[in-house]
Structures are given as structure tokens and as C-alpha cells.
Amino acid sequence: MPGPTPSNEAVIEISKLSTSFGDHLVHSGIDLEVYRGEIFALIGGSGSGKSTLLREMILLHRPDAGSIRILGVDLQTLGHGDADDETLALRRRWGVMFQHGGLFGSLTVRENIGLPLREHTGLDDALIDEIAASKLATAGLEPQVGVQYPSELSGGMMKRASLARALALDPELVFLDEPTAGLDPESAGEVDQLVRRLRDLFGLTIVMITHDLDLLWQLADRVAVLADGKVQGIGSMPELAQMDNPAIRKFFDGPRGRAAQEQGRLPHDAHSGREIGKSSWKTK
């Protein structure tokens, strides 16, 4: 279930955002805010623009109109190059966990975790390796995983290693792209718990894209539903469950939606590794 009450300080402010690809309108006047310390989820069907919105927030795509302010910085004021000093300074304040890990196959896990430190700091190799080992432990991985290569990791380990790299620079803000996609229920439940623990320990603000209904009920403080280029509703899962909008109802109606909703009503300590649809195989 959602954790401590977030502050009312807006870490992300999006106003009148519009995005098109040719004749295809992706966003049409999107407005939303993300508050410090909250776990905020973006959901929507295929083509709803949630991935594009994430890319716009992390400076991988520029919208056609509107504004995005992150950590008090208007992204429109930043230079276009990755080497721009203000852009680099802002990037150091957030971490990103990509859906498929985004780890470099030619580097060990420890080298992958240390990469942001080598890019953004002047620390020596020994200290970087020490910090990487610490982040590995924070993500719940054993020290020996650091000398393995991404191809040697299971799905769950890959997610944890990618999260460890996202935490390398001690960010204030973390973006998670489908953090439980491709995992069996037990491993997905472990990622749920890890994300919650990291938020509570370090006061992180977390923005995630997910299709995982259990994750939404058990972890998200607020959820924004995207459809037809607009935000159709924002609120906690119980609040959204009371809304009549068809774009929102599809996340609550049907067997999966009802099962996740029922599981979400249980006290947190009653959740046992995502019992709904749990399988017997593991991806630790």
C-alpha cells in the first residue's frame, strides 16, 4: 500500500504539453504535477503517449508546445547538446531504469553501475568500484554479481542491476520504465518491496510507467491515466476506481482488474508475494 504522505512541493510540473509525430497527435494539452516523495505512475493503453512523455521528461525528446519543469528547471531553457553544463547538472539529479535494463553487454555489472560516476564525477576507479558495490547491495544483489555480465543475469537480477545503476549518483528523482515487466509474480513482488523501501529510506520521488495492476495498487500514491492525448484522471487507485470514464474503467473491470483491486484492499503485511496468478517458476 502507499507509504508516507508526500509533500506538496512539485518536483515535476507539466503544463499544456502537446506532441505530434506527423499527423498523429500524441499529447494534447497535458497538465500534471508530481510531488516530492511520492510514487507516481503513468498508465494507458498502447499509443497513449506515456512512453513519449517519459522520454520528454528525461530530455530524450522535445515536445512541440507547452512546458516541463523538473526540480525547478524549465527544460525549454536548456541547451540542445548533452554536453551543456546545465543539462549535465540536471541529469545528475535523476536516475533512470529502462524497461529492458539498458545495461551495456560488454561491461560487467559493477562497471555498468559505475558508468554514471565515471561520466559525471572525477572520482578514482577504486572509489567508484566501492560505490558500485554499495549500490549493488542496496539493490539486494550479492557482491559476486558485480563481476558478471548482463547476459548472465536472470530477469529479476537485471532489473535490480539497472536500478542500482539508476541510484549511482544518489538522485532525488528516479524514473522507472516497466519495472516488473517480464518477471514472474514472486520476482515482481520483490521489486515492489525494493522500490518502496528505497523511497522510504532515501526520500526519493519515483515516476514509473507500468501495466502491472498489482504494482499500482500496492505501491503507487497517485496514478495518471492517459488516453486520447489527454490525462483522463489522476488520483490514488481507490479514487480512480470510483470514476466513470471508460478509459479508466478498463483498469478496474474484468477478472484481472477485480483481482488486483481485491488484493490491493488487503493490509500490506497480508500480501504474500502476489498470490494472484502466482506461478511456480522463479526469476530471482
Rank of each mutant, 00 (worst) to 15 (best):
P116M: 07
K250E: 00
I12P: 04
G22P: 13
M157A: 14
K250C: 10
D124W: 10
G29R: 11
I14F: 03
S154I: 11
V174N: 13
A164Q: 07
T205C: 07
D192Y: 14
S106N: 14
D244M: 02
G182C: 13
N112W: 11
R62P: 03
E56A: 05
G101H: 06
R265N: 04
Q99D: 08
Q193W: 10
H80Y: 09
E130Q: 15
W94V: 01
D269P: 07
A166F: 07
Q218I: 00
G3S: 13
D221R: 04
L136S: 05
N8L: 09
P4C: 00
S151C: 03
M57Y: 03
E275V: 08
D85Y: 00
Q232F: 05
R256L: 12
L204W: 14
P238S: 13
D192T: 02
G273N: 10
E38G: 08
R110N: 12
F175C: 07
L240F: 10
D221H: 15
G122L: 02
R36H: 09
R197I: 09
P267N: 11
N112H: 06
T121W: 11
F104K: 01
R62K: 13
G29S: 10
I276A: 13
L117S: 06
A227M: 09
S48K: 06
I209G: 00
G233R: 06
R196W: 05
F251K: 05
L240P: 00
L266M: 14
S46I: 15
F252R: 01
L78C: 04
I70P: 00
G146W: 06
L153F: 06
V191I: 15
I58N: 11
L226T: 00
P185K: 02
R91L: 05
P185I: 03
I14N: 00
G233F: 11
S51Q: 09
W94T: 12
P246V: 01
L115Q: 00
R265E: 15
S236Q: 11
G122T: 04
P255Q: 11
R249F: 08
R258E: 12
E86K: 15
G257V: 04
N112F: 07
D170H: 07
R197C: 07
A270K: 15
S134G: 09
T205W: 11
R92G: 00
M57D: 02
P185N: 03
A126C: 09
S279W: 04
E13R: 15
F251M: 06
L153H: 10
V145I: 15
G102N: 10
R258Y: 00
G155A: 10
M237N: 06
L78F: 03
E239W: 05
S280C: 01
Q76F: 06
V195L: 15
S28F: 03
L194N: 11
D129H: 13
S106H: 15
V191C: 05
G3Y: 02
A166Q: 12
M1H: 12
